[in-house]
Write a protein that binds this DNA or RNA. Sequence first.
DNA 1: ACACACATGTACTGATCGGTACACATTAAA
DNA 2: TTTAATGTGTACCGATCAGTACATGTGTGT
Lengths: 186, 186
Amino acid sequence: MSASKREELVEKALEVFYQQGFHATGMDKLVAETKISKTSMYKHYKTKEDLILATLKLRDERFRENFMNRATALSNSPKQELIATFDALAEWFEDKKFKSCMFIKASSEYQDPDHPIHMVSAEHKKLLHVYMQRLAEKAELKNPKELASQLQLLQEGAIVLAHLHGCEGVAENAKIAAKALVNAAS
Amino acid sequence: MSASKREELVEKALEVFYQQGFHATGMDKLVAETKISKTSMYKHYKTKEDLILATLKLRDERFRENFMNRATALSNSPKQELIATFDALAEWFEDKKFKSCMFIKASSEYQDPDHPIHMVSAEHKKLLHVYMQRLAEKAELKNPKELASQLQLLQEGAIVLAHLHGCEGVAENAKIAAKALVNAAS
DNA sequence: ACACACATGTACTGATCGGTACACATTAAA
DNA sequence: TTTAATGTGTACCGATCAGTACATGTGTGT
């Protein structure tokens, strides 16, 4: 049960599920693209759903780490960092591999709120909310929880519209709105 | 080619695609739920994709009409109507059949920007944007196009988060943010 | 009553789905 | 060197996918 093969599998699955979708990606496609046999896949993950959950876990960790790191790097204070999250989004949108948010898409394909895939998607968004609420608290802004929610509305909206229409101006416009909301809470 | 059967088909398809998803819904399921034979279906619509496009067209018309009517009914001026769109959203989110936005989900399953399904989804969002831009113009607000974009960001974010976490407070929070943005443009 | 055009339902196609049976290769302990 | 345990690949399973061939209505003009 070589851990490296397991890693190769989940890595490739992450890429293919993200680019092609979950229902649209068959396990056979992963066999073809990884040269890992189906038996080995099902030794590592009992079902396709387990594999999807593993890819989402990896994606959650990587995405949040990168997102928060970029926002931190592009700012000098918690208040600035809240705004800089929209610069981080802009960078993401410009990536030619950008195809919306994996968790929005996952919850689109697995709509039942009690479905594990839906639940981990919701958890991902909650963790991002916590991150921004903490920033709002550090910045000593009014109603940090509500402010974080409102900024997240702008972020999720930006992701959706950047995916639908292309990235031009979307993140910038969201950033302008975010500044207005942050200033109103100062 | 009875038009009533055609209507029954697209009606049922709309419901099932919305509740269950596109890839997850087979044509056989529609046969089972409508008692319309597969042959008849494929006489009316050459492919599943054609049927999906028909359901999206119907959904677009109905949704926008209802959305705009509700916003109009809940307000007394273009400026108020911009804000009232968030009350219309709140009503929608509270419907127990609410399962996110059909077009966000469609673009999640058909990600290629050149795919017809993706394109009609983008067009739907553009039409909503036009509606709000007109309102902003009638209300004589500053930068009507940018304001409409920012309000739409809040709306799309609200849809996504209401679907992920439930509707509690989402639309209300978005409305508060919208008021701040509208007032800033007054 | 008849013939013809067309709407409809059944039963099927090859392809693909998620998942598995089983034969074989490899390794390590005895 | 033998034996047992485990990892791997192939070839397959029944179910379901989108789509179709074909036989059987069914309505209309004569």
